[in-house]
């Protein structure tokens, strides 16, 4: 009887997962093997043709490079910046709450709005950034929105501005979870501040930071909104996998081909997600070990 009751509780969740998670996953993979279009109408099986197009498409290769570059740079900078900020803020002082709240604002704003707002700041002639640079004596300030080398940097900068606070929060939680007596023990042991940081603070924060980086990376791999707002979807120097996908499905209306592109993004994200789950499981087992 117990078991039947158990199933009664599990089945709704299971159904929900199948309808909203498993089904879309399978259907998008299946679509990748067809030539169906956005406008509907008839479609037929095309076998692996979409996938071979994906892998031979130079735009695709460029998008993979851009996406990976964006993810690696943005997440690394966010991690470093967030952690450094956390080290600075991890003590009690007046106005700490106010500063934290201010720092967290960017994370809560809608990315599209932020992209447009930053466009004003980045504008080559009227933008605040260049005005300041100009006033500072720089006669030919960088053209953030047109120079192909700087456009991706601009997207990274906005992403960093938005997501460093997240890393700051996680880092603060990590620092806060290190028992005070370990620092006392290290002081007694005559460890230098650098040694305390290297041998205690960093290794004890690392699991949580790694998890945060993985989570951020899965999200960054799908980067879409900032690129759309800052350069538009079809800019060669900032086209990510998601904006390329958008281009294929909505501008070219090739749903089948788009699905094939999407599958590839999916594989990347799933690989990272597995990394996240593994890291979580490892942390849990480490904690369980401590409890015994």
């Amino acid at each position: 009887m117990r078991h039947r009751l158990g199933w009664a509780f599990v089945i709704p969740t299971l159904l929900f997962l199948i309808i909203f998670n498993v089904f879309p996953l399978i259907s998008s993979v299946v679509l990748g093997f067809t030539n169906s279009e956005l406008t509907g109408g008839s479609w037929e099986w095309v076998g692996g043709r979409n996938f071979s197009r994906v892998f031979n498409d130079p735009k695709y290769a460029a998008a993979v490079r851009t996406t990976v570059l964006f993810t690696v740079v943005a997440v690394a900078v966010e991690l470093a910046l967030g952690f450094i900020l956390a080290l600075a803020l991890h003590r009690d002082f007046r106005g700490k709450t106010a500063i934290l709240t201010l720092l967290l604002i960017p994370m809560m704003l809608p990315p599209a709005v932020m992209g447009i707002y930053w466009n004003f700041l980045f504008d080559g002639d009227y933008g605040v950034i260049n005005q300041v640079l100009h006033a500072g004596g720089l006669l030919a300030p960088p053209q953030w929105r047109t120079d192909p080398g700087l456009k991706l940097l601009a997207v990274v900068a906005v992403d960093v501005w938005m997501w460093s606070p997240f890393m700051l929060l996680i880092s603060l939680a990590g620092l806060g979870s290190i028992p005070k007596h370990l620092y006392e023990a290290a002081e007694i042991d005559r460890a230098s501040r650098w040694m305390v940081f290297r041998r205690i603070t960093l290794p004890l924060c690392a699991p949580l930071l790694g998890l945060a980086a993985l989570l951020r990376a899965t999200d960054a791999l799908k980067q879409f909104d900032l690129v759309m707002a800052i350069t538009g979807p079809n800019d060669a120097s900032t086209q990510t996998l998601s904006t390329l996908l958008y281009q294929v499905i909505f501008s070219n209306q090739r749903v089948g081909l788009g699905a094939a592109y999407a599958c590839v993004v999916l594989v990347l994200v799933i690989a990272l997600a597995i990394g996240v789950t593994r890291a979580l499981a490892r942390m849990r087992s480490a904690n369980a070990g401590q409890a015994v």
């Binding site: 028992p179 007596h181 370990l182 006392e184 023990a185 290290a186 007694i188 041998r199 205690i200 290794p203 004890l204 401590q290």
Partner: peptide, 11 residues
């Protein structure tokens, strides 16, 4: 110094 709760470096 010997602490009541050992204070060994857990990692």
């Amino acid at each position: 110094f010997v602490f009541q709760f050992y204070a060994l470096y857990p990692h």
